[in-house]
């Protein structure tokens, strides 16, 4: 490809200067658009988007802060419900032992009903179903087995009284076996379960 320069030579020198200045000016304008205007527009768009997000965040934060007192009341209400439920019978270990706690709770009832507790054994801890929003502290079902002997009425009165006194205590297993030598006194293995605090989930 060859450039025919004869045309350029035919143009007057003043016109040549004019064309050169025009081309130079247009190139400068183009370069400014490309290197200054377009990046500045992009930056402005990004900043505008960030500013909008920040404005929304600020509005949310202000609304949240405005509702602090209401939130405090709501939390206090739920906390009080929670504490009341926990106090009403969630099992806490005594001297690091659920069996000890179970014994300390149910011994007076056994004496009252005439069921002679011979042994208390900490049984399994079963995990409890979790709601959609998983709590930080998970609860489970702690089983405690009470074995002993007594008349049928003593045994069932003991169970009924335990259920009545401790609303969260549930009979989870029972075996009453009659004994030939003592027809009025039976061996009983009673498993009660209570909700108890289990593992702490890492958030």
């Amino acid at each position: 490809m060859s450039l025919n320069t004869s045309i350029i030579h035919k143009i007057a020198p003043s016109m040549q200067r004019s064309i050169l200045i025009t081309l130079g000016g247009l190139m400068i304008a183009g370069a400014m658009v490309f290197f200054l205007v377009l990046p500045a527009r992009a930056r402005l768009q990004t900043l505008a988007a960030e500013l909008n997000t920040l404005r929304d965040t600020l509005a949310t934060v202000r609304a949240d802060i405005a509702g602090t007192e209401q939130q405090r009341l709501k939390t206090a209400e739920v906390r009080s419900k929670h504490d009341a439920l926990v106090r009403s019978g969630v099992l806490q270990p005594l001297l690091n032992s659920f069996a000890m706690r179970g014994k300390s709770l149910l011994d007076p009832l056994a004496q009252q009903t005439g069921f002679a507790i011979a042994n208390v054994k900490e049984d399994r801890f079963l995990r409890l179903q979790v709601p959609k929003q998983v709590p930080l502290h998970l609860y489970g079902r702690q089983m405690i087995e009470f074995s002993g002997q007594g008349a049928y009425t003593s045994i069932v009165n003991f169970i009924a009284l335990a259920e009545e006194r401790f609303p969260l205590c549930t009979l989870a297993g029972l075996k009453i076996i009659s004994q030939n030598q003592t027809p009025e006194t039976h061996k009983a293995f009673i498993t009660f379960e209570w909700p108890a605090k289990g593992e702490k989930r890492t958030p």
Partner: peptide
Amino acid sequence: LRTEQHDLTATLEQLAY
């Protein structure tokens, strides 16, 4: 406070189960 409320509500829900 909100997190505590949600967590306690979830615990209550689990105990309600």
